[in-house]
């Protein structure tokens, strides 16, 4: 039974999609496509990979629709699946890099004058910096800083307990500091 937190349009399209109505699922997909593209852009900077990740999210959404209980808005549930797909992508990428022995930590230099960077430049800098971390650290920092999620929201997105999220945030922060400072680049132009 889908509850009141789900909009009427979503409720109708979810039921019809489960019954096999492709057009209803197409409508659902078009309604949330932009949000999923924006979310998956946090997990890759490659547009071809982005396209595939968004497809993966919606395929998984369709297959999981019968399990959607409707006790929260559809977008929340969708974001949980998208987070899982993105995290799985990072873990796979991490395994491949480890196999190819490409996991050396590249030193990161803080850019001179972050405020002068374009939004895209800043996003690329941040993406490159966090890529030096293990997927779980990268995920928790991405959700916290980029998506502005609280520990409770991260817990909802990842399925980790709020306590585990706080511990991971703390440890990920420490590892990030080490990553930057051991390379001797912890200073900014303001220092």
């Amino acid at each position: 039974m889908l509850e009141a937190s789900v909009t009427e349009a979503d409720r109708h399209d979810i039921r019809a999609s489960i019954a096999g109505d492709e057009r209803a699922f197409g409508r659902l997909l078009e309604r949330y496509e932009a949000q999923v593209f924006a979310q998956m852009w946090r997990f890759t900077r490659d547009q071809r990979v982005l396209d595939e990740l968004v497809q993966d999210v919606f395929v998984e959404v369709f297959l999981s629709l019968p399990k959607f209980r409707g006790d929260a808005p559809f977008l929340h549930w969708l974001r949980r699946i998208a987070t899982r797909v993105g995290y799985r992508h990072w873990r796979q990428e991490h395994r491949e890099r480890r196999r190819a022995q490409l996991l050396e930590q590249r030193p990161w230099t803080p850019p001179a004058g972050i405020r002068q960077l374009s939004a895209t430049e800043a996003a690329e800098q941040l993406f490159g910096l966090l890529a030096g971390l293990a997927p779980k650290d990268r995920l928790v920092l991405t959700l916290h800083y980029l998506e502005e999620c609280s520990a409770k929201e991260i817990s909802e997105r990842t399925g980790w307990t709020p306590t585990l999220v706080r511990v991971r945030l703390h440890r990920a922060g420490k590892r990030l500091r080490r990553l930057v400072t051991t390379a001797g680049h912890g200073r900014t132009p303001h220092d």
């Binding site: 800043a122 990030l176 200073r187």
Partner: peptide, 15 residues
């Protein structure tokens, strides 16, 4: 010396 997490916060705001 600025905390690297401060850089992350600033970059994230811009990003």
């Amino acid at each position: 010396m600025i905390d690297p997490l401060e850089h992350v916060r600033e970059l994230a705001t811009r990003a």
